[in-house]
């Protein structure tokens, strides 16, 4: 097995993670064998388009999947196997070990509680301290996430805040129990661009200050580049390429990563037409036999449809690709 981190024991390690949902008489194979290691304090950008399995992968780490989901493979966090945790173990994992921020703070927060109460609850769920103490800490957290007039905001309700402020409160709630890993699921997608950058910089600052590891799920390559040390590109429920952010973006190896990056850069072909990726995303009704990208791939060979390419080292530092015809060998 590959060790991407080269830094001893990873904080989080996913091995052959799979998630399958029951749907009608069949199944949706959302995640199909994801391997990922995350070092303490490291940020990985999990990049992919709709249906790539990036959010499901993230949610499975917290075991936040509906009952119709079948989880396979291994998830170890800080040495413990998350897949084996009981209700109590999960409760301490969520919050104390791992915090999470979502795209929609209003959905994630209880609108009948004030901002202060939400943070106090999050603190007291994992620590036995008095309400007064917890409230003091809540104020510190609001200051940490740079909310102006933080003291006054403790008594505000979520719906009274602007989008950017709500997102800051959700980050404060996620940080309440000092997690060692923060899972971020498109937390800036609904925000305006001038607000988005404030939140991205805030997350990066907090992550560095506390040595917290982070997995940041996004479809936006620019956003991923802004926050990530390493990128993992997902397609059809698998990681197809992983490597240091700068290196991967400058010279991707996987034809899908290559296509996605040129589309995002607005590259045009010789005829002046914008370059996209022809075809449509894979159907997930069946577990993939070969590479899910093969039907859309300009470089596909016979082997691509027959067997699944494993994620293997490319020779460049910490770089791996799951492709029989990666760019460097083409």
């Amino acid at each position: 097995m590959l060790d991407f981190t080269n830094q001893g024991t990873p904080l989080l390690s996913l091995r052959d993670l799979s998630v399958r949902f029951r749907k009608g008489k069949g199944h949706v194979h959302a995640v199909n064998g994801v391997d990922l290691d995350l070092a303490p304090g490291e940020t990985v950008g999990l990049l992919g388009e709709s249906g790539s399995g990036k959010s499901i992968t993230l949610r499975s780490i917290m075991r936040l999947l509906p009952d119709s989901a079948a989880l396979g493979g291994k998830i170890s966090f800080d040495g413990q196997d998350v897949t084996q945790l009981n209700r109590r173990g999960l409760r301490s994992l969520r919050g104390a070990g791992i915090g999470m921020v979502f795209q929609e703070p209003l959905v994630a927060m209880d609108q009948t509680f004030t901002v202060g109460d939400q943070i106090v609850e999050a603190i007291r769920a994992h620590e036995t301290i008095s309400r007064g103490e917890a409230r003091k800490r809540a104020l510190e957290l609001l200051e940490l996430v740079q909310i102006p007039s933080a003291r006054r905001r403790l008594d505000s309700f979520p719906q009274e805040l602007s989008g950017g402020m709500r997102q800051r409160v959700m980050i404060a709630v996620a940080l309440a129990a000092r997690p060692r890993l923060l899972l971020a699921d498109e937390p800036t997608t609904a925000l305006d661009v001038t607000v988005q950058i404030q939140i991205l910089l805030l997350l990066r600052e907090i992550q560095r200050e506390f040595g917290m590891a982070m997995i940041f799920v996004t479809h936006d390559i620019g956003v991923a580049a802004q926050v990530s040390d390493r990128l993992a590109v997902m397609y059809g429920g698998r990681i197809v390429e992983s490597g240091p952010a700068g290196q991967l973006l400058a010279a991707p190896e996987h034809p899908y990563a290559e296509g996605l990056i040129s589309a995002a850069r607005g590259h045009r072909d010789g005829a002046g037409r914008l370059m996209g990726i022809p075809g449509r995303p894979p159907r997930l009704e069946q577990a993939p036999q070969g590479c899910s990208f093969a039907p859309r791939c300009p470089r596909a060979i016979g082997a691509c449809a027959e067997s699944l390419p494993e994620l293997v080292a490319t020779g460049r530092t910490d770089h791996a690709v799951a492709c029989y015809v990666p760019t460097s060998r083409g």
Binding site: D192, V193, I197
Partner: peptide, 25 residues
């Protein structure tokens, strides 16, 4: 100027260091 400066670049070497604007619109 601020709006354009707030768009994250695809080049991690050109990361934005300071938000060009504070607060929400």
């Amino acid at each position: 100027r601020a709006l354009l400066a707030a768009v994250p670049s695809l080049d991690p070497a050109k990361q934005i260091a300071e938000p060009p604007l504070k607060g929400d619109p």
